[in-house]
């Protein structure tokens, strides 16, 4: 079971990031979230969602999902981009295992861009 993200549906509202931060810190904060909408290329309006899982980094781009196994070498010919190696020291997604109703990021997403598979 894992989190599935449709990067094209995302509106970059950051609700998932805040909910995940709350799950980690029991307060509202963004620094420890394992799910992060990528907002760094604002003028190009290129945005997606990054998720850190136990052994992989998921980049849910508008054009599709890319999964990078943590520790495996990336394709050297591929142009480096900001979602290639994010937030390695953050804790990985635990699917909010302590919550009966499932991951908070899914429940808080207003456009149903996040689901569980």
């Amino acid at each position: 079971m894992g989190i599935k993200i449709d990067g094209l549906l995302c509106t970059a509202c950051m609700a998932c990031e805040l909910a995940c931060g709350y799950h980690r810190d029991d307060a509202f904060a963004l620094l420890s979230s394992c799910i992060v909408p990528y907002r760094g290329r604002e003028k190009k309006n290129y945005l997606g969602v990054m998720l850190k899982e136990e052994d992989s980094l998921v980049a849910a781009r508008p054009e599709g999902i890319e999964i990078n196994r943590i520790g495996e070498e990336q394709d050297p010919d591929k142009e480096a981009d900001a979602s290639a190696k994010p937030m390695l020291l953050r804790e990985s997604c635990d699917l909010c295992e302590d919550l009966d109703d499932g991951p908070l990021c899914i429940r808080v997403c207003p456009v149903d861009a996040i689901s569980v598979e």
């Binding site: 760094g40 190696k85 937030m87 953050r90």
Partner: peptide, 20 residues
């Protein structure tokens, strides 16, 4: 925090350092 999102790491001596 911004650097953490960059695909970069450095080898210093025998150790590899990530931006994190």
């Amino acid at each position: 925090a911004g650097l953490e999102m960059q695909p970069v790491q450095w080898t210093i001596g025998n150790k590899v350092y990530d931006p994190g």
